[in-house]
Nucleic acid binder design. Structure first.
Length: 260
DNA sequence: ATGTCTCTACTATAGAGA
């Protein structure tokens, strides 16, 4: 089974790139983040023509998660349990979409960045990650084979960002953010990229500004976490940097994981 | 710290978010 996660930074702007990527890589499942559109504006038919059924969790202008799959699946959740909407909003952000395939459950996610909205914005990021931890605990306690895949907006360790790429107090590297990522690992989840490449820089995101990609000044914030029985089947985990080198690319590259 | 990109809004530029 081949699974990928890709923050596309507007799916409408990137339809052509996602289509050609699907044709070339032929994953069984692709999780998309930052759709930046409502479900009705998602280009569903462009992916259906390639054999992928879409489940869409949309929101106007921001956020959004979708699952594209050529394997049959059913939806299990369209939000993390226990989260309350941000002040002034009527619904929680479109950030978590959970589906079940015959042998496993996949949580596709887009965690809050946490650098906007001051201390309150950062607190909401941490609360969101706490809700993700709680969800993972529930599923693991039920012995459900689980994949969490998406943009976690956390650089777990110092090899996961280029030197000087972020201020020490950036929400992506603050100790509180990293502690929550470690908690997910301590629950028994395996970081697929790091399981096969334990040391050295790996990046999945390069800022549009200041020639970051050309200088390879990136961050690793997109992750695929595997529960124990799935981790035993891990055979490959890679970042597709070629996608980031395209014309008018997303600022994120796909992370691709193969399970035996 | 921000040189870019994408979105939205009193359709055309500026603010927000990443």
């Amino acid at each position: 089974m081949k699974l990928a996660t890709w923050n596309v930074n507007s799916v409408r702007k990137r339809v052509g790139q996602v289509q050609s990527w699907l044709s070339r890589e032929a994953p069984d499942v692709l999780i998309l983040q930052e759709l930046k559109c409502e479900a009705r504006d998602f280009p569903e038919l462009d992916f259906a023509s390639l054999g992928y059924r879409a489940e869409i969790l949309g929101q106007k202008a921001y956020n959004g998660v979708a699952v594209l799959s050529r394997l049959p699946f059913e939806v299990r959740a369209r939000a993390l349990p226990g989260l309350t909407p941000p002040p002034g909003a009527e619904a929680v952000d479109a950030r978590y979409l959970e589906i079940a395939l015959p042998q496993l459950v996949i949580g596709g996610l887009y965690a809050p960045n946490g650098n906007s909205g001051g201390i309150e914005g950062f607190r909401r990021k941490l609360s969101w990650l706490d809700a993700l931890i709680a969800r993972a605990k529930t599923l693991l306690a039920a012995d459900i084979p689980l994949i969490l895949a998406g943009d976690f907006n956390v650089c777990p360790d110092d090899d996961d960002l280029a030197p000087g790429a972020l201020a020490p107090d950036d929400a992506l590297v603050r100790p509180e953010s990293r502690a929550r990522f470690r908690t997910l690992l301590w629950l028994g989840l395996t970081d697929a990229l790091r399981a096969l490449t334990p040391e050295g820089p790996i990046y999945t995101f390069w800022d549009y500004q200041a020639g970051a990609f050309a200088a390879d000044r990136g961050l690793r914030i997109d992750h695929v976490l595997l529960s124990p029985t799935l981790a035993e089947r891990l055979v490959a985990a890679q970042v597709d940097r070629a996608a980031r080198a395209a014309e008018q690319p997303s600022d994120h590259a796909p992370v691709v994981v193969t399970l035996d």
